[in-house]
Structures are given as structure tokens and as C-alpha cells.
Design a protein around this nucleic acid. Structure first.
Length: 103
DNA sequence: AGTTTGACGCTCC
DNA sequence: CGGAGCGCCAAAC
């Protein structure tokens, strides 16, 4: 585990239920601006049997769930977010001005 | 050591 | 609002 990944995950763990953060926001909050892409890398590698990491509360800067290729785990992410009361717009976007968490 | 590759983001059009 | 283009940065080739 790279120390930077730990920093990203530490930030993500602090996002309260019902709120979201963009990859870029997480990177900035972790003190590593311009490393938004790296946040995605960290999340891809992580496995959380304990479920202590709310990975689903991270979306991209457009307020959309970032595509992961072939698997449909982005649908799961949407379900989890909606279960926390987050409302998706018609175009599948989340209003970050309303749900964006500022660490 | 040069190139490609992303769970990204911002500007333009 | 949707695309294209480009910058970014570490990893993997």
C-alpha cells in the first residue's frame, strides 16, 4: 500500500453518509492536488471486507458515477447512494453544490 | 528511456 | 448539454 493511497482512503473514510466527494476533491483534501486520477487507482486496488471504506461516495467532477469498463458495479454504487438519500437528476448526475462534502 | 494507459478535470466550441 | 482536446501523474509496458 502506497502512503499516498492511505492518505486518499483516510479522506474518503471521513465522508458522511448522504454526501459525496469528487476524485479531485479527495486528492486536494489529501494534500495532493492534480492527482485525481491516482485516487481512482487507489480505489481500484482496495478490497474492503470490513466495509469500513465508503468507496461509493466518490464520484467524478461532473457528479456522475465514473465508468469502470465492463462490470456493472457502477449500478451498485448508484443504489448505495440513493439508499443514503442522494437524488440523481434525469441525466444521471448528482448536484455537487448540494451533496458535495468539503473536508 | 519512450509510450501507453487510466474509477480525472477544465476549457472551448 | 454533449464532444473533443489537452494537461496531469504514476504505473505498467
Amino acid at each position: 500500500m502506497h502512503p499516498q493511497h492511505a492518505a486518499f482512503l483516510a479522506v474518503i473514510r471521513q465522508i458522511p453518509a448522504g454526501w459525496v466527494m469528487s476524485y479531485g476533491a479527495v486528492a486536494r483534501a489529501a494534500g495532493l492536488p492534480r492527482h485525481a486520477r491516482h485516487v481512482g487507482v487507489a480505489l481500484k486496488q482496495v478490497d474492503d471486507p470490513d466495509g469500513d471504506l465508503p468507496w461509493w461516495r466518490v464520484v467524478n467532477g461532473e457528479g456522475r458515477i465514473s465508468p469502470r469498463g465492463l462490470d456493472g458495479s457502477d449500478d451498485l454504487q448508484r443504489v448505495l447512494l440513493e439508499a443514503e438519500g442522494i437524488v440523481f437528476a434525469e441525466n444521471g448526475r448528482i448536484d455537487l453544490r448540494r451533496y458535495g462534502w468539503q473536508a
